[in-house]
Nucleic acid binder design. Structure first.
Lengths: 249, 249
DNA sequence: GTATTCCTAATGATAGGACAAAGGGACATG
DNA sequence: CATGTCCCTTTGTCCTATCATTAGGAATAC
């Protein structure tokens, strides 16, 4: 029943900057994804795990909690902790589309269709919590995967990003540029829906007029709670979809 | 700068079954939603909060973490914890559509279009991790909000739910029925996309043929990691959308 | 035999302490 | 005046410890 975990968790780096609970969580995650921890199998109980790894129970609990939050493990009081049975899917995280594609070796490219300063609408002002006389950067980009256009990205950025150039947006993802300027993203609120594509979208996506598009609008907040992006994106639905993992608390 | 928190957190129930951290988290959430904790304001530091509430730091930390996970607060080491600036939106949680609508007083009704035992396709068998000779319950429901049809719900349930009747599905949501039978939902994996609606969908949703639909497919797992539902849902996109809150770890 | 009660094993909640790391401002120094 | 250094504040990590609650099986009573 209980699988051997001894070898898997040796060589924890206790001096480096990476937290112990994080090191353990990553190793368990890899073990599950490799199949070393079979779906449905129970993992050792928390006290024994703590003893074997020579760490405290709160630390191993925190590591386990990470994987529970990812939907890889399920805990039951009085019983134990089990690996969820079922295929693995990577869930939506706070990474950009560009990062996602780069990771899966899809060679994303970007064409900037519009790059202007503007006085935004009241709705966008409110989303970004800016004063009424503020100027924002308005950009519109077409994103390609292996040369095929599949996403139209329209974004509004607060004044501190006015200096970003069209050339930079051709070469880098928005989040890369934000990170490079010291902005740390923390929270994003997204709404996902669908509608009939506009004439522009149909033409750009090489689809018939009246074809559906998947749409997502997002407000992104940085580490101090300020809104740093408002975006309205549309996707060719046969080439893109969202994955979400939900965990009951 | 720092707001008064004293009055807000009196009368904690230390003997009842509701955890302290949860009571505190709820009160802070209500305070934020009421506006008593203004967007952008810093809350008291953890040590002082713990002292004022006469609880330990781990407990107040856990309460704060709840709200960070909900995207209501942001923490920064060396600085403090702040309320996120920006409108509030309720995020997707592991509740059913029926529950969502009930809560918002929308009087959902359901019409069962199909209710049959069947031998599922290989894809569904794999999603539910069932043996090849298993029989499942296949249901197809049309969901109305205030009399307007807006969602077509097709579900496949493992053998233990074969006894659920069409009448039950007319009166109750799927998750209500599952809960009543002792099943506790824990993890759901969803894919959200869009496509052209089928002829059936166009007719049921009272839309023109070729209109777009928002689609969601979901596999749901219970507390022991078993798959207990596979569903493919489609929604009238002008009447329904998904909200997601993402938090950087 | 069946139902109830009890026990055990496991996770859940809470406490309290110690030290580390990072942000930001004050201060000193070039 | 600009730049670097130190220090204080605050959250991050990790520890030990204790009791509560639950699930499930074992033992018991009827």
């Amino acid at each position: 029943m209980t699988i051997s975990t001894e070898e898997l968790f040796m060589d924890l780096d206790r001096s480096g900057p990476i937290p112990l609970y994080y090191q353990i969580a990553r190793r368990m995650q890899e073990a599950i994804e490799r199949g070393d921890l079979a779906p449905g199998s129970r993992i050792e109980n928390e006290l024994k795990l703590a003893e074997h790894l020579a760490i405290s129970r709160p630390t191993i609990r925190r590591a386990i909690q990470e994987l529970v939050d990812q939907g890889l493990l399920v805990r039951r009081r009085g019983v134990g902790t089990q690996v969820v049975r079922g295929r693995l899917t990577r869930s939506v995280e706070l990474t950009s589309l560009y990062d996602d594609l780069s990771i899966s070796n899809r060679s994303p490219t970007t064409k900037v269709l519009l790059h202007e300063e503007m006085r935004p609408s009241a709705e966008i002002l409110e989303s970004l919590t800016l004063p009424a006389d503020a100027t924002v950067l308005h950009i519109k980009r077409l994103r390609f995967s292996d040369g095929v256009p599949f996403a139209l990205l329209e974004n509004y950025l607060p004044p501190e990003f006015l200096t970003l150039t069209a050339e930079q947006f051709e070469k880098h993802g928005l989040y890369q540029l934000m990170r490079a300027r010291g902005t740390t993203m923390r929270v994003a609120r997204q709404t996902i829906g669908a509608r009939v594509g506009t004439a522009e979208e149909a033409q750009l996506f090489d689809q018939k007029p009246g074809s559906p598009v998947l749409v997502m609008s997002r407000t992104l907040f940085d580490q101090s709670g300020h809104a740093v992006e408002f975006g309205e994106h549309s996707y060719r639905p046969d080439l893109y979809s969202f994955e979400v993992t939900l965990v009951e608390k």
